[in-house]
Design a binder for these strands. Structure first.
Lengths: 191, 191, 191, 191
DNA sequence: AATGAATGAGTGTTCATTCAT
DNA sequence: CATGAATGAACACTCATTCAT
């Protein structure tokens, strides 16, 4: 009860829009500086909303981060539908998949967010479900084309590719990737 | 009766020991809470040294984190010499390598630190060298046994396995891993 | 399929009822956490009304608190009429009064609110009138039975009993209280 | 780990003095605005120390408040030794005690702090011990002179006097107080 | 008339870093 | 040398209050 303080001005009215804008901004901040350095202030500034709005819509920072990660998860779904289209019936899968992963890596931001989620999930069991679903989405796109077993192996390899590329800055080697993917597809135990 | 200062028990005189203790403590803290939440205080407490010692030996937090990551890198070298011994001349490599990666994952701490480094390197070019060297160490153990190309592919796959395991909490499937590793070895383009 | 707004159940139209509900809720919150920690939000939640209603009916938090304290004052009047009935013509006054104060202390909430008011009044002259009236109400019940002077002394003692009981958690000692009350009655200078 | 920030200047060196200054400042702030409105910032300003010093010496606000209350408790001990001296062997006790309580009330601050403690203790069991000890100190000064039973009654009455005086702003009536005190002394059941 | 949205000042607390001792 | 003290910026979060709807 700290008495009598005067706010000024009330702005736009678009709650759902603000929620979305905040989650999107949080997503960008996470990609930029990582979950551990994501702050209300950084998100508010990015979203160009007043600081108070962040906690109005997301009571805790954890909530805000969670919303951002869920958004990234949703974005991944969109991306993966594109993959599914592009992979078609599985013809030339290794080559096409190689092309897709290379494109994916062109925008570091999405991949960085993915690994932020993975690392956070490694420490916070609440995030495991989300991380697992992330992996599952990739598997589900591939499974119809190469079988569940190969799909799992491919998902693993693709994550490894992305991670090492981001971490080392080494350019990806499409030929090597394609060779490896092909080998993993052929090795499918068939389950 | 002025305030008598009890002559404190003679301080340890072992600067190098302290440096090591601090770096080791920092390593543990990083594994526990991540680079982003690593603080001087947490490290000092872990190492059981006074707060001032942290900045005395490592002028900035960045220096301290870097020392911890370098230590982890060194530890990896030790671990990998064990791998080299264990893999011998490459007989049964997929199976043996599967066993080694499973053991590696038994201690989450080392793997977590690895991915902290990777993610940090993805954002800080200064750390890229270290991250690249991390990857290289693995390749160098495998290259003599399977060739440089396959070694690269195996290193990628192993990182993917570790990451997905930590992130999702899913148990590893040794059979699947072994199958995939075998396929990658066989696919070696030979370069 | 635009977002359909479910026609909300017709709102209560009972402004006076809401005012009362808010003041009552505020009274409870004050008893629970003290004036200093009473917030619009806590009151709104307690009263199960929207946040906006608190400031709609009571422009400032101070107003809301004042309303709650006035309500407590009114409640005291009700309680004291019961006292008057119970004390009858003053026969056995010390014993009966002891019984009444012990009952009063059975519900901590009322007594806590009283002392919140007292302490607030000690700092805010606007509340002095209310606090004085609180004391007066007690005196007025007792004065016809024991005279104005003794009534004042009894009111003082009763407040002391309540305060020390609440603060220390010590159980009250009815015999001691009765003895003291009797002495104060007998000492009445008669004015 | 929010990197690289530059403090400036380090000041006096007198840890014990600072602790004391902070506790004393907190005591004043509590007397002024109450425990519920006591803030780190207000205390820091009062003590003329930087904000960081408050949490350096008292990790939480609760600790700071507790230190202030303990200080007040200690102060009371000093005050009460003065009372003991002044009351001597108990001759003229009612009159002398009346004088002392009137003096006590001349400085509202001490009494306000007392009641802040009482009210806080009513809600926080941890503070009960301190509140009980406060009451006990008064009893212990009086018990040798009038017996334990009367001492308890006197302590109750004195608290009532102080409370009503502060809350209502009514001037104290020394004659009435003296009469009441005398009656309570005479009523001593002798235990 | 009634309320959810909005805001920014203010809170408790943490912490990297500097410095006197 | 080594370290406890010191500091102030920053943080997550709360809240009284105003206002558009």
């Amino acid at each position: 009860m700290s008495t009598e303080r005067p706010p000024r001005t009330a702005r736009r009215r678009d709650p759902e829009g603000r929620r979305r804008a905040l989650a999107a901004a949080a997503q960008e901040v996470i990609a930029d500086v990582g979950i551990g350095r994501t702050t209300h202030r950084a998100v508010a500034e990015r979203a160009d909303v007043p600081l108070g709005a962040t906690t109005y819509y997301f009571p805790t920072l954890t909530d805000l981060v969670a919303a951002a990660l869920e958004r990234a998860h949703t974005d991944l779904g969109v991306e993966l539908r594109r993959w599914a289209d592009h992979l078609g019936d599985g013809t030339d899968l290794p080559a096409r998949l190689t092309g897709l992963i290379c494109e994916y890596l062109d925008d570091r931001s999405q991949a960085l967010t993915e690994f932020e989620l993975y690392l956070a999930a490694a420490r916070s069991p609440e995030l495991r479900v989300l991380a697992a679903s992330w992996v599952d989405q990739v598997r589900e796109v591939l499974a119809p084309l190469v079988g569940a077993g190969a799909a799992r192996a491919l998902a693993v390899f693709l994550d490894g590719v992305a991670l090492q590329h981001l971490a080392t800055g080494e350019p990806v080697d499409p030929t090597a990737i394609e060779t490896a993917l092909a080998a993993l597809v052929d090795a499918d135990p068939g389950n």
